[in-house]
């Protein structure tokens, strides 16, 4: 969508397409929508602000529980945090057999789970609430703002690449650099000079596929969820005193409630899946082929 179209939309009131495109455009450091698909000179300010804010909020809660943790009878809050922590610890114990590695990977998995849950939960806010407040605050009625950091591919790929780096680190740490390089060229088809290039190709594809699917899965779910919320919001926006408009408004209330309730499951499930995959991938880095 070009700037021209946005300006045009502003003068007439946005069409459905314009409304959605506007909502799917990031507030970035250039001040206008990113032109190229890949441009590493640009930062999405909204994604950074909300992901850091959610990370700080999530870890603040965990830290509060940790700083008051007692071995006596726990309060409800402490018990709730312990519940999540033990769930993650149990999963980590089942997947990663090295206690030394778990010292880093289990807290990492907990961080990922809680952080992603908080970021996903931003989707539960009304789609127009924060953008509208932001537009009012800045006085710019076309200011872009996206509040769900996990509905930004940069956010999810950033985390999945983080998991990839952890995997590479443990590959080298557990197998030794030589052992890992040997594995790169000898697995999965077997150690033979003829098969070496094929093995290496397969390994590269495997790493790339894992990382991209890891990030894309979360992104796709949250992006689609956000889009559905916007479509539902459009139904309510059709309110115009006509019968159809009133029916659509009621449809908004019903569909919006249903989707929001269903989304509680999705945001939790996606956070859990991302955490589990992070554990599984790092666990694979510990095992020789």
């Amino acid at each position: 969508m070009s700037e021209h179209a946005v300006e045009q939309a502003a003068s007439h009131g946005p069409t459905a397409g314009e409304y959605i495109v506007h909502h799917l455009t990031h507030w970035n450091t250039t001040g206008h929508p990113q032109a190229k698909i890949v441009d590493f000179s640009v930062f999405n300010v909204d994604t950074l602000i909300f992901s850091v804010a959610m990370g700080v909020a999530a870890l603040f809660l965990l830290w509060r529980a940790a700083s008051k943790a007692t071995s006596g009878v726990p309060g409800r809050f402490q018990a709730a945090v312990e519940l999540v922590l033990e769930m993650v610890a149990d999963q980590a114990k089942g997947i990663i057999h090295s206690a030394e590695s778990r010292k880093f990977i289990a807290p990492l998995a907990l961080t990922v789970f809680v952080w992603i849950f908080f970021m996903n939960a931003m989707d539960m806010l009304p789609v127009d609430l924060l953008p509208l407040l932001w537009q009012t605050a800045t006085g710019d009625h076309h200011a872009y703002l996206r509040v769900v950091p996990t509905a930004d591919l940069n956010g999810t790929l950033g985390m999945s690449i983080g998991v990839l780096l952890v995997c590479l680190y443990y590959n080298v740490k557990i197998k030794g650099f030589g052992g890992w390089v040997h594995e790169l060229f000898s697995a999965p088809f077997g150690s033979h000079p003829v098969l070496a290039p094929l093995n290496f190709m397969m390994q590269l594809i495997e790493f790339a596929a894992k990382t991209i699917s890891h990030g894309m899965r979360l992104f796709g779910n949250m992006y689609a969820g956000e889009l559905v919320f916007m479509l539902i919001a459009l139904m309510g926006a059709a309110w115009a005193g006509t019968f159809t408009g009133a029916a659509l408004w009621i449809g908004h209330v019903i569909a919006g409630s249903m989707w929001a309730i269903f989304h509680i499951l999705i945001i939790t499930l996606q956070a859990f899946i991302f955490m589990m995959l992070a554990l599984v991938y790092t666990g694979q880095a510990h095992e020789g082929h």
């Binding site: 441009d39 950074l48 529980a65 990492l108 961080t111 790929l157």
Partner: peptide, 30 residues
Amino acid sequence: MNLNATLFAQLAVFFILAWFTMTFVWPPIV
């Protein structure tokens, strides 16, 4: 869905948060 430098920032935040949890959250609760 454009890619940009946010990705690297997110990567850094990811490790900072993980480090914080590893240092200040996980050990006392465990």
